[in-house]
Amino acid sequence: MGRVMTETTVSTLTPPRAARRGWAGQAGRSALPVLTVLAAIVVAWYLAAVWMNAPWVRDQAARAGETVTTGQLLRATMAQERPVLPAPHQVAAALWEGVTGQSVTSKRSLVRHGWITLSATLAGFALGSAAGILLAVGIVHSRVMDLSIMPWAVASQTIPILAIAPMVIVVLASVGVTGLLPKALISAWLSFFPVLVGMVKGLRAPDPMQFDLMRSWNANGGQVLRFLRFPSSLPWLFASLKVAIAAALVGTIVGELPAGATQGLGARLLSGSYYGQTIQIWSALFAAAILAAGLVWLIGAVARLTLRRMGLAR
């Protein structure tokens, strides 16, 4: 997982090109292709659900000595309690039930589990982004840090997070630290890296002439950082924050998988798989995906507003 994240990180870290149209206009223009793809996925999903759930229906029928018509078979594959692959409407219903079906304090509420995951994600994201930015500032200003930190940062991301996460949880639990912090640390582990890479590039983005101008005004390092490097790096920062927040969510969910966790979307995934509750797994999965999409969208919106105000996205 760590390895995959590293590769996506590097390829996603080009700053957004000038966005001339408003996002509403863009949404209108891109709605049709998106909906077409969505419809195709739903159709394929239904077909797969029928195909994968049918053997169980036939087995049951054979055991009862009955024969099933195609119509019965189709209906039966859509309404199983523990299907191999739940149909889209079953997942949607479970998702709706999980969000609105009970009070948000209930142990079955997806809002409650979602909030627990979200809070650790945001904490980890904040920690990781701050670490990434600080390390990038250090790397840009110090050749020693440039040579010493970067290899370790890259190495840290080649370690599979699935191997590290249980150790972090167990070690911290043994010293009495449980709850949000261990998960946030795993989340920060994954999210600092894209920010580090993006900010190193962003802080070095101004062209040499801009640095010469600063030098001609006898500006000190702090002033160059504040007036030139940091504002110029914002397109890179926002691009990397988008990657980082998604990575932070993955990190938190992975942190919720090890034994003992009873709360959060990761715990829902795990308990679902213990008891063969495929619908629960899928609804938790979709809750996580919706959460991630919402977070990425939020950062995108902040980025658009900020960059447009700064004249960097014109």
Partner: peptide, 27 residues
């Protein structure tokens, strides 16, 4: 000395007055 390059090198996030103000703020 003041140095003028071939490109204006003005910051897009500052107004014209803000750009002229920049070296003054630094100094």
């Amino acid at each position: 000395y003041g140095y003028v390059f071939q490109a204006p090198g003005l910051y897009p996030w500052r107004t014209i007055a803000g750009n002229i103000s920049l070296p003054l703020e630094i100094m």
